[in-house]
């Protein structure tokens, strides 16, 4: 048996990339401490979204490329909170509270569809996500919200593509209990929130239902033979993923300071997928360590590559490199997993 965290190609690539970036940043006199603070923020900002992939992965449904469905539920929650003009931390809490029931409903429908396409969940989820985005665009364009801060300034109909949260609950969690340590801003409240989310997921997978879900993901035929209700477990996993995704986008939006509507959610599933794969979850039980490590490594490259590319005068490079890394890692994981299944067949 290999060690549990044996370094594989994706981690290696990302580490090499990270180290060379850090070296470059050092030479270009970019403040490393501020980068580290940013990295911590980005860890949580995206961490909950990445965490949301865990239930579906562990139930054997695969990577939730249909993340836009969950994000939509979260965006609706955010918009409702802004519409009722709830500010500060209560605003954020309200957004989450609005989002959860919506995510449950959407997640249930999404799960029912995924239950029909067993074995091809990932590709179907991708296109459910892709087609859900224009459907929601339609909704955003005619949504009956009334807060003028969210509507087009001219005409007053239809939502703006980006809604500023400065007057509502922008960076509420980021600044909560944050303190400075050796020049690094430590967003303690934000980190605590993430830790709580992780803890909740961790505890869930220790319960009877959670254990059953992991067993289902490991061996569906076994689960069936043990008399478990497979479709119910799968639906539960998808709903959990969707709820976490909705909470994830709420955290993301408050941290970013803007709600991004319309086409923004379309590609959000891929960086999240890539992050969890970098963490080392490819083809086996995904743990919280994979989530945290993966998100941290992946997002730190984001944080560092931006200022460097700007300093080098070709600002597009950063984005292109990120895309390349994102998709390269997913492809590597797919090929690697294909090799593993082959070997598994050979062994039996």
């Amino acid at each position: 048996m290999k060690r549990r965290l044996g370094i594989q190609l994706p981690q290696l690539v990302i580490l090499v990339f990270l180290v060379s970036m850090l070296g470059l940043a050092f030479r270009l006199d970019i403040s490393l401490t501020s980068l580290l603070g940013d990295a911590l923020v980005r860890l949580v900002m995206n961490g909950v979204l990445v965490l949301s992939l865990v239930p579906m992965l562990n139930a054997g449904i695969g990577i939730n490329y249909g993340l836009p469905v969950a994000i939509t539920a979260g965006l609706l929650g955010l918009c409702l909170a802004v519409n009722f003009k709830i500010t500060g931390l209560p605003g954020f809490a309200a957004a989450v509270l609005f989002a959860v029931p919506l995510a449950t409903i959407l997640g249930y429908g999404y799960a029912r569809i995924l239950n029909c396409v067993q074995g091809r969940e990932e590709i179907t989820a991708t296109f459910i996500g892709f087609s859900f985005v224009p459907l929601m665009n339609y909704f955003w364009a005619v949504a009956p919200f009334s807060n003028p801060a969210m509507l087009w300034p001219i005409g007053g109909k239809g939502m703006r593509p980006t809604i500023g949260l400065r007057d509502y609950f922008s960076k509420e969690l980021n600044t909560l209990w944050s303190f400075h340590l050796f020049g690094i801003t430590v967003p303690a409240g934000l980190l605590l929130f993430f830790a709580l989310c992780c803890l909740a997921v961790g505890i869930f997978f220790k319960t009877r239902t959670g254990v059953a879900m992991i067993a289902l993901g490991e061996n569906e035929a076994f689960a069936k033979l043990s008399g478990m209700n497979i479709s119910r477990l799968r639906i539960l996993a998808v709903i959990l993923s969707t709820i976490l995704g909705a909470v994830g986008i709420c955290v993301y939006a408050q941290s970013y300071g803007f709600i991004e509507l319309y086409d923004a959610p379309q590609m959000m599933a891929f960086p999240a997928a890539s992050a969890i794969l970098v963490g080392g979850s490819a083809g086996k039980k995904t743990t919280l360590l994979h989530v945290i490590l993966g998100t941290f490594l992946f997002q730190t490259t984001y944080v560092i590559s931006g200022p460097i590319a700007n300093a080098l005068m070709v600002p597009e490079v950063a984005e292109i490199f990120r895309m390349m890394i994102t998709n390269g890692i997913i492809l590597y994981a797919l090929v690697h997993e294909g090799k593993r299944t082959r070997e598994k067949y050979a062994a039996s």
């Binding site: 067993a215 490991e218 061996n219 035929a221 076994f222 033979l225 086996k284 039980k285 039996s348």
Partner: peptide, 10 residues
């Protein structure tokens, strides 16, 4: 046993 009877990684 391998495929149906046991959870190999447990």
């Amino acid at each position: 046993r391998r495929q149906l009877g046991l959870l190999q990684d447990h």
